[in-house]
Design a protein around this nucleic acid. Structure first.
Lengths: 336, 336
DNA sequence: CTGAAAGCGCTAACAA
DNA sequence: TTGTTAGCGCTTTCAG
């Protein structure tokens, strides 16, 4: 049988409210009583039931986190979230959506049911439905990985456009002109569409033609990257440089090219995006865009905390820093 | 203002108990009433407060998961746990311990306070203290990554001994005799000590001498592996084959050797442990021991569920399968 | 089959 | 300062 505050009160010979008071330090308590109660709590290792407290306070210090999948990227995100959460007395409760909108919606509801104090949603495609549902159950929400300003929902993301434009400019500076891209699924607003659009725009700005055959779509997997490269190499002309929508894609593509006898970067330069651990571990080390995913986690949790505590927020949107990491997978043809 | 069951009852013109009955399907309810209630629930999108229910049922359908850190390895573990949990209506609540016993102990208490139905603890060094604490708050527990039979706590782990012995035998079969090892911290009972001991024992069994200079300790990081290899290469004689306590170490070591002009596997064969994604992505592809971490997660959650539901368990211990993945980082000197 | 009422463990008025 | 008591939102006897 688990102990309750009542038991403690009885054992210490005081009222339940006194026990509650020493536990919460909510009101002055006579030293003598305080000691008696503390002694009993020590001896019995009593811990107040968080459920009962939550029921009264209407707060659980629980944050719901919805992610498509726990992988090496979201691991950083979770770490960031967890770190800030823990520092503020919160715990996080996890739900894998498998990128399925249906699941995301369900998780949103279940979290509301569980009375979480806030939700962080890492999603690739927020729909009107999400928004309606959230408005219904009135739980503070922060979205990671997609801009949701139009919905009035605060978000945290990397700028996906500028870095890719920068990558293109960098390649041009290195003397490349025949540049291709393996881009991600375009339903993915941020990592897919934005990066693709940035590539197209910057190439146009530089007045560089794009061979449609040098534009291949891929899922965000090494296998996808490998296959995309296979299809790319089936053309008679191949680009001298290739922008990849992610490191994972880039590494898949690199492996394929190398398996086909191409030398990286001598025969083809490759640039990634994300700067996952792997990027600096493969040889040649991958030139890529560094994104501080953990920072996205801490930032989103901070914003969430702010909206929970202040009930209203100032910063609706936040971009996390990025940085071009020049390593060894790009060849300089000539300086411009 | 959030809706309660009372509001629903009023709106439907029935008693709260009737509402509760249709929500839980706990007792027969007149069709007419059921419909009225269901309609109101639909319209208002009412969701019963899980806190209040938990308070009564003494169960939260919450599983506490304590891990040293969310990284690419624990990501698989979490995925496994989450998958089984979700399938059974549970959610997981996370706590990073940073491998700090103090933190682990605290998390154990806080989880008990939160009334979790069970705890999965992924730890590298379970102490008597952990056990005492757990016995106090009587929450079902499963340990991952360390054998705790002596404490009467069910655990899930990989066999760390046999696979390493097998690796040694494999290397010997490939004609290697001068074999070294970069081993992990020995406080780590499983991934550290056991793998080290297995190496020593099997070498002895094969009556192969070990040059103490070919035995280097390293943390489980690429940097650690890199530095360990640096110190290894300072000797005049280097081993022809090197067993590494993890893939991460192996890749660090490989990069160092390559940076120093050694060719893998021509100049030195390297074997890892874990078979992380990376292992098949680096070139040469790493020969390693495949461990299904996700399976450790599902298995531990299954065992936990079993002890929660049956209140007693049959299997106290469980080894997860492993498999030697022969790839390209070992050179065959001669067949034996 | 339905409703009133007790109570899960705790906190917070309200009196004393 | 302390104790008594009324809930928090829900489930579950227990009568009807």
């Amino acid at each position: 049988m688990k102990l309750t505050i009542k038991d403690i009160a009885k054992m210490a010979g005081v009222s339940v409210s006194s026990v509650s008071r020493v536990i919460n330090n909510s009101k002055p308590v006579n030293d003598e009583i305080r000691e008696r109660v503390e002694k009993v709590i020590q001896e019995t290792n009593f811990r107040p039931n968080a459920l009962a407290r939550g029921l009264i306070h209407k707060s659980t210090n629980l944050i719901g986190v919805i992610i498509p999948q726990v992988n090496s990227v979201s691991a950083h995100l979770i770490n960031g979230i967890e770190e800030v959460a823990a520092r503020n007395g919160y715990h996080i409760i996890l739900s894998n959506s498998g990128s399925d909108t249906e699941q995301e919606l369900k998780a949103l509801d279940i979290f509301a049911e569980r009375q979480v104090d806030g939700i962080i949603l890492s999603s690739v495609d927020i729909t009107e439905q999400h928004v309606q549902q959230m408005n219904r159950n009135k739980v503070p929400l922060v979205v990671v990985g997609q801009k949701t300003t139009e919905y009035g929902i605060p978000w945290v993301d990397v700028d996906n456009y500028q870095p890719v434009a920068e990558v293109v400019r960098y390649l041009v500076r290195c003397g490349h002109e025949r540049i291709g891209m393996i881009y991600g699924p375009l339903q993915d607003q941020s990592a897919g569409l934005s990066r693709y659009q940035a590539f197209l725009d910057e190439m146009a700005r530089k007045q560089l033609p794009i061979d449609p055959a040098h534009l291949v779509e891929s899922r965000f997997t090494t296998k996808g990257g490998y296959e995309a490269m296979e299809s790319l190499l089936r053309n008679e002309s191949v680009p001298t440089a290739l922008v990849c929508a992610s490191d994972i894609i880039a590494i898949g593509a690199k492996n394929c090219a190398e398996d086909r006898g191409y030398l990286i970067p001598e025969d083809m330069s490759i640039v990634g995006f994300d700067d996952i651990e792997l990027a600096a571990l493969v040889r040649p080390q991958l030139t890529t865009v560094q994104v501080n995913i953990e920072r996205m986690g801490t930032r989103s949790m901070e914003i969430l905390l702010q909206t929970i505590e202040e009930q209203q927020l100032h910063t609706m949107e936040h971009y996390v820093d990025y940085r071009l990491m020049v390593r060894d997978s790009v060849k300089t043809i000539r300086k411009r």
